[in-house]
Amino acid sequence: MTEAHALKTRMATLFRRFPFLPALGMLLLLFVLNGIAEPNSMTVRALKGVASTYLALVFLSVGQTFVVYTGDIDLSVGAILSLVNVSIVVIMSQLGGEPYVVLLALLVGILIGALCGLVNGFVVSGLRMQAIVATFATSILLSGIALWVLPVAGLPAPSLFWKVYGGRSYGIPNVFFFAVVLIAILAVLAKTSMVTKLLAVGNGQLSAYQSGLSVTRIRIYGYVICGVFAALAAFCITGDTASGDPLVGGAMTLSSVAAVVLGGTALSGGIGSAFGSAIGAIIIGLISSLVFYAGIPSEWQNLAQGATILVVLMLGVLASRRINQ
């Protein structure tokens, strides 16, 4: 009896330390199911396809996590992604596709992302508006700017850009290196006190304030980090689609929220992991490829995907609550 209890406590501690464990289990299950449905889906080539399509969502969901840590939400991530996508494509096409121009465009892209995050942080944290409606308003504003930068979709990105994204180095697809870079960034961020501070604010703003944290500024940092990751996501989209599209990110905002929840992060803030959100985004990608490989008639695929995501979301929330009790 006591041994079972001790085991339970140890499990609970483990899950609290790594909130993404249920998501990791789900991810492995989905890999197995995909492999059973279509053995070819586990080849490097097929996995590279999934990775290049969903790496943008992975970055976007990771960014969203830093906002959700504090209990806020950012409904403008898709608009930031679109704005950065069209901005860098326009810069590169205006100045030519030389390597230094591409680097300059990437730098400008990251600055735009950070600036958008700063604006969001200012209205939500500085002006104390409600995050859902305020970031929806900024998303309208940012989509408008994206449409002004590039009114119609289809301006091509220079070949250097998509060749690097879609290419291979030492026989390994480059997208996998980008995934490793993401993990490295997350590891570095985890070493800083920023994540702890964000989580502290999410646990209770008043207690965080009373223990001397500058809550307003920390929430703004969360939005700025989110904006930078949205810019990185835009680079992935640009590499994948090889063109600019002012509406490309619109549908990805809600998926990023779903991925964050799938990864074991609580929308109320105070608990979670960015690594889990990355897993959540891959889960969404694997569900759609499983639905495809399972031979479901095409008109039923969207429904099967939507229903599976709903069930997985519910299971994820139930699992994390069980653990935290």
Binding site: I73, L254, V257, A258, V261, L267, S268, E299, W300, Q301, N302, L303, A304, Q305, G306, A307, I309, L310, L313, M314, V317, L318, R321
Partner: peptide, 27 residues
């Protein structure tokens, strides 16, 4: 029922439901 009995946050529950409804529309 999802929100009360299962205790899913409304935003998550209705977001998932939105995906189901969009799929249902295609069907």
């Amino acid at each position: 029922v999802g929100v009360t009995i299962f205790g899913i946050p409304p935003l998550v529950m209705t977001l998932g439901m939105l995906g189901v409804l969009q799929g249902l529309l295609v069907v």
